[in-house]
Simulated scan of single mutants.
Amino acid sequence: MRTIVSPAQLRSRRGRLIYWSLLVLLLAAFTLAFLFPLYWAATGAMKSPGELARTPPTVVPRVWHPESYVQAWQQMDLGRYFLNTVVVAGGAWLVQLVVDVPAAFALSKLRPKLGNAVLGLMLATLMLPASALLVPTYLTVTDVPLLHLNLLNSPTAIWLPAAANAFNIYVLKRFFDQIPDELLESARLDGAGPVRILLRIVLPLSRPILAVVSIFAVVTAWKDFIWPLLVFPDPGKQTLSVLLQRVAIDMPLNLLVAGLVLAGVPMVALFLVFQRQILAGLGSGAFKG
């Protein structure tokens, strides 16, 4: 096997020194590139507004103001908007799993007639820009067909449009395709129906990909801005992303940065807690062609 550095060069002392030196430098550079923005935001919130806006900027605050986080929490009433966002993101996650998992299971293992055509139509929706769907979706949630309900200022205005996610259905279906049919057939011979097979066999085997899909669902709902801005005209029911944009003009810069940092902490914590499941799901082959 031909590589950039031959095995003979790696076995030499000079080759090992150069190899490990470059590897450490590259790892340090990539780590700095990812962590420095987080450091800049976290320390920027602890600067005074004048120091934060000065040119050239200071890498380390001259005077530390950790109370900025407390002031941002109190002045922007972040606790209330955190709760709003948790309700929106949690509901969107639950609704997507309830709808997408059975849909992917049906397309993968039950193989209904015209299943491929249905999947193709679902994937075709991914070709449409999100902005093109705003108006028809908005008209739908303001007057739900048949029910004639107005869902504005209700979390269901976000939950229902997010329910049928074509990307999640495709990813789940690709994972379910890898589950051996013999395993499911043996369960059918024991008298298990489709629902029992899904709950007792498929879901326990699908924890890695369910973790990936869950992260996608929660992060998408947590950081979404345009759609919550449209469906929550009542300021008291808005999410964090809408709040931070609304108060950006009147809020001191350091407090605004503190609010942004606090809004991002749950997503960073979520990744750190479930990183093993996420990496397992990404490496499970569900994304391979």
Rank of each mutant, 00 (worst) to 15 (best):
R2I: 12
V5H: 07
A8G: 02
A8C: 02
L10C: 10
R11V: 04
R13P: 07
R14F: 12
G15P: 04
L17W: 08
W20N: 13
L22D: 00
L27W: 10
F34A: 10
F34M: 11
F34Q: 11
L35G: 01
W40S: 06
W40C: 00
A42W: 00
G44H: 01
G44F: 00
M46N: 01
P49Y: 00
P49A: 02
P56C: 01
V59W: 11
P61A: 03
P61N: 05
R62N: 03
H65F: 04
H65N: 02
Y69A: 05
V70R: 09
Q71F: 04
Q71H: 02
Q71T: 07
A72V: 06
G79A: 02
G79Y: 03
R80M: 05
Y81D: 03
L83T: 01
T85W: 01
V88Y: 01
A89V: 03
G90N: 04
G90P: 09
G91Y: 05
G91C: 09
V95A: 09
Q96H: 03
V98F: 10
V98N: 02
A103F: 10
A104C: 09
F105Q: 04
F105R: 04
A106Y: 00
A106C: 12
A106M: 14
L107I: 11
S108N: 09
P112K: 04
N116M: 13
N116K: 12
V118F: 15
L121M: 14
A124Q: 01
L128Y: 00
L128T: 02
P129W: 07
A130P: 06
L134Q: 09
T137A: 12
T140P: 04
V141R: 04
T142H: 15
T142Q: 15
V144Y: 00
P145D: 06
L146W: 14
L146C: 02
L147P: 01
H148R: 15
P155N: 03
T156Y: 14
A157I: 06
W159K: 12
W159G: 11
W159C: 08
L160M: 14
A164M: 15
N165R: 09
A166F: 11
A166W: 11
I169F: 11
F175N: 06
D177E: 14
D181G: 05
E182G: 07
L183T: 07
E185I: 03
A187T: 03
L189H: 03
D190C: 06
P194M: 09
R196C: 07
I197D: 08
R200H: 13
R200V: 10
P204L: 12
R207A: 14
P208E: 06
P208D: 07
P208Q: 04
I209F: 06
I209M: 14
V212D: 05
I215C: 09
A217N: 11
V218Q: 00
A221L: 06
W222H: 03
K223A: 09
D224R: 02
F225D: 06
F225H: 11
W227R: 09
L229T: 11
L229S: 12
F232P: 01
G236A: 13
K237H: 08
L240K: 03
L240P: 01
V242H: 10
Q245E: 15
R246V: 07
A248K: 14
I249K: 14
M251K: 11
M251H: 05
G259S: 13
L260S: 15
L262R: 08
A263Y: 04
A263D: 07
V265R: 14
V273D: 12
V273N: 14
Q275M: 15
A280V: 07
G281E: 14
S284V: 12
A286F: 08
F287R: 10
K288H: 13
G289C: 11
G289W: 12
